[in-house]
Design a protein around this nucleic acid. Structure first.
Lengths: 104, 104
DNA sequence: TAATTTAATCAATCTACATTGATATATTAT
DNA sequence: ATAATATATCAATGTAGATTGATTAAATTA
């Protein structure tokens, strides 16, 4: 994940878009995002549903959380994750604008 | 690039979206796409503008073309590439729907 | 024909990062 | 306190694919 320290606005936007794309272009991560679309889920639900090892899911959740695409809430032993819809939307909009094809 | 042969529609859409994301999440490729947004360019223009080796650009152009995001036209020694706006739009729409966050 | 320019191809290397296994930590229950 | 459950972390490995160098092919010009 490259840093944000770069000269101009356009370069910074490119970085943001690329970082976002790198994150969601991973199969398991995009599946996790889709799974969290409806409602929050604890880690055990996620890895059981996606049939993935627990530590792998935990790893991907960290990547998603570090990028603020999801957030978590602790309840007893469990940790529930939910999608940050606004943030995801923000990046989707950024991508759309970035690749915006004016006329057709 | 995984193939399309999979059971249901939703799975097929996931594949399409992922393949698209893998392709455009590469820095040089997304730069090439942006460069072609306005008008067509020959390979030599592209690699000189992006300051990349010719064979590297040629390689990325092939990836983009194989996925039908761009197309080419030969004129003498030169080969001009242009973006397939409709196709790019198609995949952007697919991604948006795929990650569509209904309510806010 | 030979020389030059443009682009593609191929094999080799390098790099990022996904995955796995083992272990650690925290919470709850007995 | 011990056991069981849920999650996170860390080091090691594996792998996809980006990059590079060398070569080839095709068109153009001298």
């Amino acid at each position: 994940m490259k840093s944000d320290r770069c000269k101009n606005k356009s370069e910074r936007k490119l970085r943001q878009v690329l970082d976002f794309l790198k994150i969601i272009s991973e199969e398991n991560r995009i599946k996790i995002l889709r799974l969290l679309e409806r409602d929050e889920k604890c880690v055990c639900e996620i890895w059981q549903y996606l049939k993935l090892p627990q530590n792998l899911v935990s790893h991907h959740l960290k990547v998603l959380k570090d990028f603020d695409l999801i957030s978590s809430r602790k309840e007893g032993v469990k940790i529930f994750y939910k999608i940050n819809k606004k943030v995801v939307k923000k990046y989707l909009n950024l991508l759309n604008k970035f690749l915006n094809l004016k006329e057709d």
